[in-house]
Design a protein around this nucleic acid. Sequence first.
DNA 1: GGAATAGTGTCTTTTAGACATTATCAA
DNA 2: TTGATAATGTCTAAAAGACACTATTCC
Lengths: 262, 262
Amino acid sequence: MDREREFLETYDPSVFPSIAVTVDVVLLTVRNGRLSVLLVKRGAHPFRGRWALPGGFVRVDEDLDDAARRELEEETGVSIEVAHLEQLRTYGAPGRDPRLRVVSVAYLGLVPDLPRPVGASDASDARFWPVDDLGGDDGPTLAFDHIHIVTDAVERARAKLEYTSLATSFVEEPFTLADLRRVYEAVWGVSLHPANFRRKILSTPGFVVPTGDDRATGRGWADLYRPGGVAQLHPALLRPTPPELTLPQERGRQARARKRMT
Amino acid sequence: MDREREFLETYDPSVFPSIAVTVDVVLLTVRNGRLSVLLVKRGAHPFRGRWALPGGFVRVDEDLDDAARRELEEETGVSIEVAHLEQLRTYGAPGRDPRLRVVSVAYLGLVPDLPRPVGASDASDARFWPVDDLGGDDGPTLAFDHIHIVTDAVERARAKLEYTSLATSFVEEPFTLADLRRVYEAVWGVSLHPANFRRKILSTPGFVVPTGDDRATGRGWADLYRPGGVAQLHPALLRPTPPELTLPQERGRQARARKRMT
DNA sequence: GGAATAGTGTCTTTTAGACATTATCAA
DNA sequence: TTGATAATGTCTAAAAGACACTATTCC
């Protein structure tokens, strides 16, 4: 009986498989109009000198969220008390770490562009890299399976911008609607019509509230806003027609149907 | 240096914290019009005799997904080769298992109503329970923190029905649109207008494809459909006005704005 | 016949997308 | 002046929600 075996293992911890549990943090921000991720340069074997996500072992009496915050602070100097930090998913394929079996709980964090330089407390180097550059000529090739984790994190961020108010986590408050629009444009990699964007944001109850002040932007004055406290957006702010979901033949069908009716 | 310590731990596995890694599976189905979850009665300490999610230790060379499938099969006799199984999230609060530190990777599975009785291979008993009954007078109180895992799983399922074609995982194919509608009604706990539901499903490209056959339903004949192969729905099939997101005062504001314009 | 369900069609309201207009400020 | 941006308004098409209507079958 499996449950019987589980009972025995209770009192002999050396019996259950020896698997290490770690946390990795994908900290995203928008710098110079580009979605970027915080990476550290590994100072130890394996993958010494390669860039990787900040992370490390979970302590035996430490909650997973606390471990993520601690490792982020230890390796990059970034402490995110106020910013958004959520669990992304867990990566546990055998062989993903050449040393031993490691199950890693990945976290996704969002912060405004950090003016202070980060890093260099524990890791040998730490900096933000534009996610589009990863694996290309202008960016690093990541250690372990971290490129997959970053890919999943970016997709999660893109999706959550649609139906939550998370975009405000990327900007310092107060912010202008143009600030917020540039977040969406950087994360989604599209350009949005300023007028329609404004209408949608302001017609979504609780998304943002005006502070009453405005700010000189170089060309005219822009109203300032603050997060409205609502987490889920209703209605959602959908991305402009996802390319992989638009079937040309169906568009043809719809056009023909329209033509028949006129 | 933390990375230095990590290097040393590489070659002395007894150094890193001793944490057990398990998987738990939340297998959902729709039975008798109610969203239900598969539970097993625990035959061993702790929580002996209490109902819990099927699950167990991950083997040292086993992928997490494989562990979830194996434990589900071992404890309940359910093998889901074709059905949907996805990672939900990972639960790792210290103290969630009274024996030792356990980090559990939870999975969400969706299956059609299973005609054969399940369970009784490893666990002392196994059956589906309506999720609304859990913790109440008509249902069991779950072991560990499993009620929280089930709650998260149900919310995930409700959300994914909106923007994916996952609802088809709950029905055997071929199915009628009424079958599919009953899935949405059971999972969301609402009633939907049959006519509007039909229009939305059929106007979503790739969601379902007609088989050309129909089936006697007792009252008339219903066309039969099969999943259309599209995973993401566009446009999405949103739940009718989520109550917690509807701000009465904002509705008042919109009504006043309309009045001013006329 | 009455009740329940499948399938089709129509009307209104809301929202999204495209675009025009005015005001303001910098170079 | 020219160009870029903020803010507002307008028009059209698409989508959602409510509802009417017919056909079919069981009781």
